[in-house]
Amino acid sequence: MAELKPGARFQSTVCTTQVIVVKGDGDAELTCGGAAMVATGTAEISGKPAPDAAEGTLLGKRYTNADATVELLATKGGEGSIAVSGTPLSVAEPKTLPASD
């Protein structure tokens, strides 16, 4: 179980993916490439993403669940895809704000 609180950082154990929690609340079953994600810097990468969880994660994209209670920002991309409780997260719509500074 991972505690999803804003600012918490997690890494995949099967690919290079790393994320930071933008929005989240409480414990969740957070996986990448089918394997549980762990606090960044606490594990070596070994093995490969499971075939059904290898869509990939893209650097800088924000990933959310269907009811938008969880939002993760990918700070490093990788081959595995991220899921919460077995349900893959989807890429949030890009912002359309004009540049202001």
């Binding site: 650097l59 800088g60 994209k61 920002l73 890009p94 912002k95 704000l97 540049a99 202001s100 500074d101």
Partner: peptide, 28 residues
């Protein structure tokens, strides 16, 4: 994170910064 899309700029974009560094706009 709220206002800027990561890598949202096209490769040929460039911004001219003429506000001084000690202004909040210079930091932003």
């Amino acid at each position: 994170l709220g206002a800027v899309e990561f890598m949202g700029a096209a490769p040929d974009e460039a911004t001219i910064v003429s506000v001084p560094p000690y202004h909040v706009a210079g930091v932003a």
